[in-house]
Amino acid sequence: MSKPYVVGIDIGGTNTVFGIVDARGSILATGSIKTQKYTEITDYVNALHEELSRLLAQENVTDQIAGIGIGAPNGNYFNGTIEFAPNLPWKGVIPLAQMVREKFNIPVTITNDANAAAIGEMTYGAARGVKDFIMITLGTGVGSGIVINGQMVYGHDGFAGELGHVIVRRGNGRLCGCGRTGCLEAYTSATGVARTAREFLELRNDESTLRQLPIQEITSKDVYDAAVSGDKLSQEIFEYTGTILGEAFADFIAFSSPKMIVLFGGLAKSGELIMRPIREAMEKNLLAIYKGKVKLVLSELKESDAAVLGASALGWEAS
């Protein structure tokens, strides 16, 4: 009988979360370690091995793990490496899949966090049975995973699908964390929404409840709360953000003709405040042959579980 469980590991800038998952996508148990605590990668892998081994023993499944999947910033599927990840404590190229494989003697696959989310959605979520879709993660940044004909698109080097870094404002665009200007991420991430709020407040005189907050401390959650309570300026910020996203989506559709675009992350939970302007701008800017064909849907994975589920779906691939 084949082994019934996989392990999913999600490496974030602050925490690393891991879980034991069965074929139905049920999480048997989870654990975590502090990513930032370990400045040496060998110390990190040792701590991960110790904590995960304890969890496997506790659940009595040590010999029943088919594979380990890892979702990580700048994770390279082809090489099994994390490469030059700006928010992780280890610099350069880290052969993480090999290091974890040697510790556990279990097959290991790694990819970037947005690709892991897409694979999770295809295995357990809204994209089950869908062969062509794009996953967009709207968090601190904007990530994406592109699936064509049931296959994740990795490109020749493992780094395909950086749609958050498509330039949507030429010339005088905002500086992005990647060092370029005008990227989609600089406008439509949670951070981008807060930047828009500051710009609107500084350049305009409209009344807004946001003016009661220290301008440099405004978050996307503040903008959402104000918009829901009827604040017109905050509603306009969502309109502006959703329009930029919808325009970008119309371009994305032109190159892969997906059946759906799946949205995930805190900003996606803003409901019609963000979905309506996205939908309208997308349809308005679509080439005629694509109009009315592409569904815009929210992720069906619970946010607290999504990262682990996405990574775990890679574990089946590794086995």
Rank of each mutant, 00 (worst) to 15 (best):
223 V>G: 07
294 V>C: 09
282 M>C: 11
190 A>D: 01
181 T>Y: 11
250 A>L: 08
196 T>R: 15
282 M>T: 06
185 E>Q: 06
218 I>A: 10
242 G>C: 04
176 C>H: 02
258 P>M: 03
221 K>I: 14
273 L>E: 04
278 I>E: 03
288 A>R: 15
226 A>N: 03
193 V>S: 07
188 T>G: 12
216 Q>H: 14
287 L>S: 04
298 L>V: 08
224 Y>E: 13
261 I>V: 09
305 D>A: 12
207 E>C: 11
271 G>L: 02
229 S>A: 15
198 R>C: 11
232 K>E: 14
196 T>G: 08
183 C>Y: 02
297 V>D: 03
251 D>P: 06
304 S>C: 12
257 S>F: 12
279 R>Y: 07
210 L>C: 03
251 D>I: 15
200 F>L: 13
197 A>P: 01
281 A>G: 08
217 E>C: 07
286 L>F: 04
214 P>Y: 02
267 L>W: 08
233 L>P: 02
200 F>T: 01
247 E>L: 13
273 L>D: 07
199 E>Q: 14
282 M>I: 01
223 V>M: 11
177 G>V: 11
210 L>D: 02
297 V>T: 06
191 T>Q: 12
255 F>G: 07
256 S>C: 15
269 K>A: 09
265 G>Q: 06
282 M>R: 03
196 T>L: 15
212 Q>V: 11
231 D>N: 03
282 M>W: 03
244 I>P: 03
267 L>N: 03
250 A>H: 12
245 L>V: 04
218 I>H: 06
219 T>F: 02
306 A>D: 05
295 K>D: 14
252 F>R: 10
255 F>S: 09
285 N>T: 04
298 L>C: 06
198 R>H: 07
180 R>E: 13
226 A>S: 11
189 S>L: 09
200 F>E: 11
255 F>R: 12
273 L>G: 04
275 M>K: 05
264 F>S: 14
226 A>D: 05
309 L>G: 05
292 G>F: 13
213 L>C: 05
303 E>A: 13
265 G>Y: 09
245 L>R: 01
305 D>H: 13
290 Y>Q: 05
224 Y>T: 03
279 R>H: 11
218 I>K: 06
246 G>D: 00
197 A>F: 08
293 K>W: 09
241 T>A: 01
267 L>K: 03
